[in-house]
């Protein structure tokens, strides 16, 4: 074993050169890169945390809006139901009134028609009776007498 100072010094210089090269070409750029990456990660994490907090706020406000909307909807539904009931009631009432009016109108019309028909039938009957009576008894009755007779008979029939 021979320990030689020049060789030790040479190796010290050699190592120094290697260390310098590794420091300036490898370690520092890599460290810088890793620091940048770490700061980006920290920024990303804080941004993610902020986004999560924002999302939580949004969720809360969304729930609040939903609750309010549900309340409003319930009120609207209730009002609409009331209104619908009212409209229905009015419509039924109106229909009832209209049908009553129509019924009464039809009744009146029917009474008129019935009266008209009765009159027509009476006249026809009078003429028929007069014709028959004239043929049977050979005497022509006057219209007043015929009408009185026929009217009495019809009244009996109608009863």
């Amino acid at each position: 074993m021979d320990i030689q100072l020049p060789q030790i010094i040479f190796q010290v210089i050699n190592f120094g050169v290697v260390m310098g090269a590794l420091t300036y070409l490898l370690y520092k750029p890599i460290q810088k890169l890793m620091d940048e990456r770490a700061s980006r990660i920290v920024e990303g994490q804080s941004a993610a945390e902020a986004a999560l907090a924002q999302k939580a706020n949004l969720d809360e406000s969304k729930r609040k809006i939903e609750r309010e909307a549900e309340k409003k909807a319930a009120i609207l539904i209730e009002e609409a139901a009331k209104k619908a009931t009212e409209i229905k009631r009015e419509a039924v009432e109106k229909a009832r009134v209209e049908s009553q009016a129509e019924t009464s109108k039809l009744k009146d019309q029917w009474q008129i028609e019935k009266h008209q028909l009765t009159q027509d039938m009476r006249q026809e009957m009078i003429r028929a009776v007069m014709t028959v009576t004239q043929k049977v008894i050979g005497v022509k009755l006057d219209e007043k007498t015929d009408a009185k007779l026929i009217g009495d008979e019809l009244s009996k029939l109608m009863k």
Partner: peptide
Amino acid sequence: ILTSLIVSTLIISFAVAVNWSL
């Protein structure tokens, strides 16, 4: 010493290559 010099050259080359790759 000769081996150390070769190794040192290789290490420096590696460092240069890494720097270039960066």
